[in-house]
Design a binder for these strands. Structure first.
Length: 424
RNA sequence: GGAGAGGUGGCAGAGUGGUCGAAUGCGGCGGUUUGCUAAACCGUUGUUCUGGGGUAAUCCCGGUACCGGGGGUUCGAAUCCCCCCCUCUCCGCCA
């Protein structure tokens, strides 16, 4: 959510943001309704002031005086009710529009309609030249008995999987390795609720708009999280933090659930696009300072890069263009890891900065050194998401004999094993 | 799932229709005292929106709303009524 004052004072900037992000919201409608509602609120407020003032006389009056005053106050009260009825009519539409008005993208966000126009920032590592015909992760996973998607489809439907044997262990290893890196970097590890309230979903800006992507509970209230960003960012919502607590750095661990509606026929092979996965997510709450936000954005990108480098995986970073940027982000860098079976880079990480967009919705504030209450800035990035990361891990590290070498950083988490070869 | 109790400021805890943004205590902040610390004493102590004034900024004056959330009764609601949510205790079921 943007500062309403900002929208009133900079409608053209807001409209330009809508255009750059390819988001259709009637900003003028919001401006008109907002101005009408505010005018009514001002008049209701002054009526209430009068009402309160005159009501103070009431207890002191004799019975007949009370009766007369009641008559007068009733008129005031009716006018207040009238105004409030108008407001009650206007405000839901104002709020509804407000939730759809996007955050302003940074100037350095490239112009573009969709992910094909994202701009590569840099590449790190060189995709391996195979001297044999490499298998894809499904072939590797099946032949080494790490993965079963066929039976999963029978048990759980499409976009499901079983991880088995070293596949299961490898997932836990890579997650734990990633989490340990974050803890060593000063992040608080968090195991979080997977079912959250609608408020938490709205607060992190997944709603409205993300209804199609998220699983909603029907018997009870609640939504399954698509990322631990939701509970972790919302964790301190509604609070006024002490500035000394900032920055707050947290690493959320959770399963993630995504409906993947509208993706039929896309990425159907293997475990690239699935309904449920595990993720460690890094979240930072910091001061309301664009420079600081930007610094932490670089930091969370760097954490992800370090992990990919230790996993010995080539990757590239792209600056996500306006049309591919979500409503709440100021800027987003996607990290894409080399996946031999795709003969290309596939998204494995997504690092966003939001400024106060989420914090406003979550009412997440802090008291600055000068006593002023301000909204925090929020940021987040993937640390590792599995099993998607198993795709490059298995494919890049495969050997001609069909085995897979375990990168050194994961061996301590795999009981010292160096290779997955199906023998156990 | 059944029965009961309760949700008030950072915390504890009064307040059952008007003078209540709310007693009191603790905590926090400022000060006095002190060689320092503690104690004691004095003062202060939230947020929202809004009108006006002022600054580099903190700010000042007025109004409004906020006592779990929503609705209602009333001239007027923390206080009365209805619905919902949450917490606690006991019972049942159960990983």
């Amino acid at each position: 959510m943007l500062d309403p004052k900002f929208i009133r004072e900079n409608p053209d900037v807001v409209k330009a943001a809508c255009r750059k992000k390819r988001i259709d919201v009637d900003v003028d409608r919001w401006l008109a309704l907002d101005s009408e509602s505010r005018e009514i609120k001002r008049s209701v407020e002054s009526l209430k002031a009068e009402q309160n003032l005159r009501s103070k006389e009431m207890p002191k009056l004799p019975p007949d005086g009370k009766l007369a005053l009641r008559g007068e106050l009733k008129i005031l009260s009716d006018r207040v009710a009238e105004g409030e009825a108008r407001i009650k009519l206007l405000d839901p539409e104002i709020d509804g529009l407000m939730l759809r008005i996007p955050n302003i993208p940074a100037p350095e966000v490239p112009e573009g309609k969709d992910d094909t126009e994202n701009v590569e920032v840099r590449r790190v590592g060189t995709p391996r030249q195979f001297t044999f015909a490499p298998k894809d992760h499904v072939e590797l996973g099946t032949s080494l008995d790490l993965l079963d998607t066929e039976r999963a489809a029978r048990i759980a439907g499409s976009r499901s999987y079983f991880l088995k044997n070293e596949g299961a262990l490898l997932e836990l290893a890579v997650l734990r390795f990633a989490l340990d890196h974050m803890v060593a970097s000063g992040f608080t590890p968090m195991i979080v609720p997977h079912i959250v309230s609608e408020e938490a979903m709205r607060g992190t800006a997944y709603l409205p708009g993300g209804e199609e992507q998220a699983y909603q509970l029907t018997r009870d209230d609640g939504w399954l999280i698509g990322t631990s960003e939701v509970p972790v960012t919302a964790y301190r919502g509604g609070e006024i933090l002490n500035v000394a607590e900032l920055p707050i750095k947290m690493a959320g661990w959770s399963s993630c659930y995504r409906r993947e509606a509208g993706t039929y026929g896309k990425d159907t092979r293997g475990i690239y696009r699935i309904h449920q996965f595990m993720k460690v997510e890094q979240v930072i709450l910091c001061k309301n300072d664009p420079e600081e936000s930007k610094k932490f954005h670089a930091e969370i990108v760097a954490h992800a890069e370090t992990i990919l480098q230790k996993l010995e995986l080539p990757y590239r970073i792209v600056n996500v263009c306006g049309g591919d940027l979500g409503r709440p982000q100021i800027q987003k860098f996607d990290i894409e890891t080399w996946m031999p079976s795709r003969q290309g880079y596939g998204e494995t990480h997504s690092a966003s900065r939001f400024h106060e967009f989420q914090a406003r919705r979550l009412n997440l504030r802090y008291r600055d050194a000068d006593g002023t209450v301000r909204f925090c800035h929020t940021l987040n990035n993937t640390v590792i998401a599995s099993p998607r990361i198993l795709i490059p891990l298995l494919e890049n590290h495969q050997n001609e004999d069909g085995s897979v070498t375990i990168p050194e950083c994961l061996r301590p988490y795999m009981n010292g094993r160096t290779v997955i070869n199906g023998r156990r």
